[in-house]
């Protein structure tokens, strides 16, 4: 059977795991094409207008997969980790956001709740409903998942060496093309969710653009989980998984003198970012780290992004030159 995986949202984090899992169960994985304007048009048409662009992108990919006539479409519902930390409410409502916006998808959806204990190694019980969907035994699932977890950790190891998503994925497949990190170049932390920084349309290839300006780019998923856990301190913590990751990445990088500046790439009307975005601003101010927010939606133009990052990079270059 063919299982469609939308190239959106957590695809950019978990794809290696999912691909390995389904392939090892004997199925063929089909991924939707990289986001393009036409696809997004259709997603926008079918999705509530007020929602953040990543969800519209997701629906675009579901529509695209329907056109490819796959047997199933994998739409997991990530709920919370370790019984404590939640995913963004829109992840919790993702299956509904898909099936009530695109009714034809309903029949094809493989959808169940995922409550992992830790988020880089999954337990067979997290994926148990797959046994019914795909008619496999629990034992087969366990074996396939074991392999998938291994592949995922291999992938993560590449990420932690500074690879970006695409490079880590091809490295996993045997084509190792290490990312360019140059001595003496500017170091910029590009903070934001994987589905924003890696989506070619949403991010307008910002990583490549920065590299073309001779900048070393760092992202939160290059850090091992153990560096970005919540510190033990009093008070309420950020309780969304990926928001916590980006938040603690920034807190860490603020103390790192090697980092010359921080760019926050975020979507308009992103709920969790409306909280941490403000905290980033305050913290960067406190540590005098140059900081810029780029807020994107379906109307953001290329020119706008290009101008802003150029100005930011120029400013940093000027600053470092003067400091020398």
């Amino acid at each position: 059977m063919t299982i469609g995986i939308p190239r959106a949202l957590l695809y950019y984090y978990y794809f290696p795991l999912w691909r390995s899992l389904f392939t090892n169960l004997g199925h063929q994985v089909v991924v939707s094409a990289p986001t393009n304007g036409e696809m997004l048009e259709e997603g926008i048409k079918q999705t509530v207008s007020e929602i953040c662009v990543p969800i519209k992108v997701y629906n675009s990919h579901v529509i695209e997969l329907l056109k490819k006539d796959v047997d199933f479409i994998f739409v997991p519902r990530f709920v919370r980790n370790n019984g404590r930390e939640w995913y963004c409410p829109k992840f919790l409502g993702l299956p509904e956001l898909v099936k009530y916006s695109i009714p034809e998808a309903k029949e094809k959806m493989i959808s169940f709740d995922i409550h992992p204990k830790i988020d880089d190694t999954f337990d067979a019980k997290d994926f148990l409903p797959l046994c019914d969907y795909l008619n496999v035994s629990k034992r087969d699932l366990k074996n396939a998942l074991k392999k998938a977890n291994e592949d995922f950790l291999k992938f993560r190891a590449f990420m932690e060496k500074g690879y970006d998503f695409e490079r880590a994925l091809s490295a996993l497949d045997g084509i190792d093309n290490p990312p360019p990190f140059k001595k003496g170049a500017l170091n910029i932390l590009l903070i934001g969710y994987v589905y924003n920084i890696y989506d070619p349309l949403v991010s307008m290839n910002i990583i490549q653009k920065l590299r073309d300006m001779n900048v070393n780019v760092y992202t939160f998923d290059m850090l091992n989980e153990k560096f970005i856990r919540n510190p033990k301190e009093k008070g309420k913590k950020i309780y969304w998984v990926f928001t916590r990751k980006i938040y603690n990445t920034v807190r860490r990088m603020l103390l790192d003198d090697e980092i010359d500046g921080i760019i926050h790439l975020t979507a308009f009307v992103c709920g969790p970012d409306s909280v941490v975005g403000k905290l980033f601003e305050l913290d960067c101010d406190k540590y005098q780290k140059p900081f810029m927010t780029i807020r994107v939606d379906e109307h953001t133009g290329h020119g706008h992004l290009q101008t802003r990052i150029e100005a930011f990079v120029d400013m940093l270059k000027y600053k470092t030159k003067n400091a020398m």
């Binding site: 999705t47 007020e50 829109k90 409502g93 509904e96 009530y100 916006s101 009307v269 709920g271």
Partner: peptide, 28 residues
């Protein structure tokens, strides 16, 4: 405007309206 959970509700509203045959207006 932009309320996360209620946007999920808003996505479901057309179906409820159809199933239950009742007009529903959603305002932000």
């Amino acid at each position: 405007f932009g309320c996360l959970p209620e946007l999920v509700t808003r996505s479901i509203i057309p179906q409820i309206s159809k199933d239950k045959n009742i007009p529903i207006l959603s305002l932000s």
